[in-house]
Nucleic acid binder design. Structure first.
Lengths: 221, 221
DNA sequence: TTATCCCTTTATCGAGCGATAAATTCAAGG
DNA sequence: CCTTGAATTTATCGCTCGATAAAGGGATAA
């Protein structure tokens, strides 16, 4: 049996892709590229990506000037589009005790980033040393962790006129790392099936808040 | 000016590599490959690796049957050769209080793995889902974290006839993650210059030991 | 029905990859 | 000196990659 006819080797069963509007096709491409590159890494080939979309490889280049352009749109979708400005609002909401605020925030934050695609793209990008990754981490520091430091100070009634110190920030990074690492275990190591997020967040936040209260809180000793 | 003569484009200044004994050459190759692949990822080309060694690319294949073989030796050097059996001895040494044991252990452990090469190779391998990586994590669990659980039980005078529970293990993973994450920040994110390891380890270990003491220790309340 | 538009495919290019075979060159032993 | 053997280089193969140009073909409007 000869194998000259196209589409019989290991390709999808249809010979020609369904016609789509440019907007549909482009968003389908970005969606699939996110899944594909998060599994295979950004060195993976455009031909295999096209095959999984049921299209031919040159069609990708009608919608993206280069592979790098496509990847940049994937980054944008992961890093920028999924960021929620509500996170900082939660953290700043002084009608709620800091302990509860932190737990609410981390439940929302991990609901967004604790999934296979986000976690793996994050580490693929980190290992490449990409600027967009550095900027994301800086955004976490500036827009989430520093506010946490400031709010903890406020709740403890401490001086809020001086800038947050490195030590205060490092304490928050410890809590953050403890929580974040459990996502790595599940989605990068794949060494655990399910994580008890409530337990992880409760433990991490309680540890942080308790330690903040103990370390030189006025009138605590 | 023509560029036909070899070695004038962007190669090292010498035309021919210094002759080495097979043992010297092979170990030099593995050493440089570890550095090279930890920076560029395992998709990086053998020609660039050879260039950095001041040799030509086919010479690599006199010492390794394939690129994959070379990479496996890199893994072996990182994962197996640097493992220290003394780690479990430290953790089992009941002449020392558990808190101090854990701090000694983590200082030794992080001294080995908190460096750019180890951390990056670990994550490159993790993202590839390699079996050797899974086995390393399993080794950490079985040979380090489970012993920690058992030793904590012993120090608290609890029943040591039942196997370590998932909950006990998850508590250790929280401490472990808190410490490990700070290595990620430095060597994968490259978002921090220096880490106060004594502070990180003290905080992580104290948090874990304190929480173990509090959670239903007989005679503690 | 036919013409037009544009989404999609076919064909192909040049570069880089891992790997092999054959030629070369250096160093040691006679 | 010359010979010999092994370390190293040169040349090259087949394949895959990202990317481009040109041909094909399906939907829509006249």
């Amino acid at each position: 049996m000869s194998d000259n006819s196209p589409g019989t080797r290991n390709a999808p069963p249809h010979r020609t892709a369904k016609r789509m509007s440019p907007e549909e096709r482009k968003s389908a491409l970005i969606e699939k590229a996110t899944e594909f590159f998060s599994e295979e890494g950004f060195e993976a080939g455009t031909r295999e990506l096209a095959r999984q979309l049921g299209i031919t490889q040159p069609l990708i280049y009608r919608y993206f000037a280069s592979k790098e352009d496509l990847i940049n749109e994937v980054y944008h979708k992961v890093y920028i589009d999924q960021w929620q400005d509500e996170w900082v609002d939660m953290l700043r909401d002084r009608s709620v005790p800091m302990r509860a605020r932190l737990k609410t925030f981390y439940h929302s934050y991990t609901a967004t980033i604790f999934n296979r695609r986000w976690m793996r793209i994050f580490f693929f990008a980190a290992l490449k040393g990409l600027d967009i990754n550095q900027r994301y981490i800086e955004r976490v520091r500036r827009s989430l962790l520093i506010p946490i430091c400031e709010e903890i100070r406020a709740e403890l009634g401490r001086d809020d006129s001086t800038p947050v110190t490195d030590t205060e920030l490092e304490n928050v990074w410890l809590m953050h790392g403890m929580i974040f690492y459990q996502g790595i275990r599940k989605h990068v190591y794949c060494s655990v099936q399910e994580i008890d997020m409530a337990f992880v967040i409760d433990t991490g936040v309680d540890m942080y808040v308790d330690s903040a209260h103990q370390s030189g809180a006025p009138g605590s000793g």
